[in-house]
């Protein structure tokens, strides 16, 4: 028995799929005429198709639709515009949530910490909500006053920051930067700057 070319079976399937080229079909037909084994193979495949296609339609059980409708959950899960938007942009949502939470903590620390506070340093005079650096006194550290006023009459060897208050100086001598913070936004900026500075100073 001579060996049939392998592609003949391939062509048979192309033929059965209905996407055989004219040339392949011609080749297949010529081969089938001359080869009984392949002709038999082709017949069997055609029979297989006919056999499977003769499967009768199975009727749907009575009351199928009603049963499905009974089983579906009561509330349809239709998504409204907002929900759909949230579902489609998870990163955006995460970023927004993060920002909201972040700013909330910062703003609340601005608004809630209404009580007066001051960096402790020897030589400072505190009267009510006014902090005074007396004449002739030298503070050798940074000075932060929250929710109070600062009057500098002596010397400060460091930065001065006043939050929610007034900085008053006459003949003051401050070696560092002087900052006065009265707006939430500035407070935010100050907190961030401070945070970064702390980060670097601990890294050192």
């Amino acid at each position: 028995m001579k060996q049939c070319p392998e592609h003949v079976v391939e062509y048979m399937h192309e033929y059965l799929d209905g996407d055989i080229s004219q040339q392949h079909e011609k080749e297949l037909r010529t081969h089938l005429k001359s080869c009984d084994t392949c002709k038999e193979h082709m017949n069997e495949l055609t029979n297989v198709v006919a056999f499977i296609k003769s499967a009768a339609a199975i009727s749907v059980p009575a009351g199928f639709t009603t049963n499905v409708m009974h089983r579906i959950p009561m509330k349809p899960r239709a998504l409204k515009g907002v929900q759909r938007f949230l579902r489609r942009h998870p990163m955006l949502v995460a970023a927004v949530v993060f920002l909201i939470l972040m700013s909330a903590t910062l703003f609340s620390s601005f608004n809630n910490s209404q009580q007066f506070s001051v960096t402790k340093a020897p030589g400072l005079i505190v009267e009510g909500e006014t902090v005074t650096v007396p004449v002739g006194e030298t503070i050798k550290s940074d000075l932060v006053v929250e929710n109070g006023n600062l009057v500098v009459e002596g010397n400060v060897e460091g930065d001065v920051t006043v939050v929610n208050g007034k900085y008053m100086a006459s003949t003051a001598n401050v070696t560092g930067n002087v900052e006065e913070i009265n707006e939430s936004f500035e407070w935010l900026w100050y907190s961030i700057k401070n945070g970064v500075k702390k980060l670097f100073s601990t890294a050192d």
Partner: peptide, 13 residues
């Protein structure tokens, strides 16, 4: 088949 229809319903969106 019922389960398929229910699944389709739930995930219709």
């Amino acid at each position: 088949a019922q389960e398929a229809f229910i699944k389709a319903y739930i995930h219709l969106h």
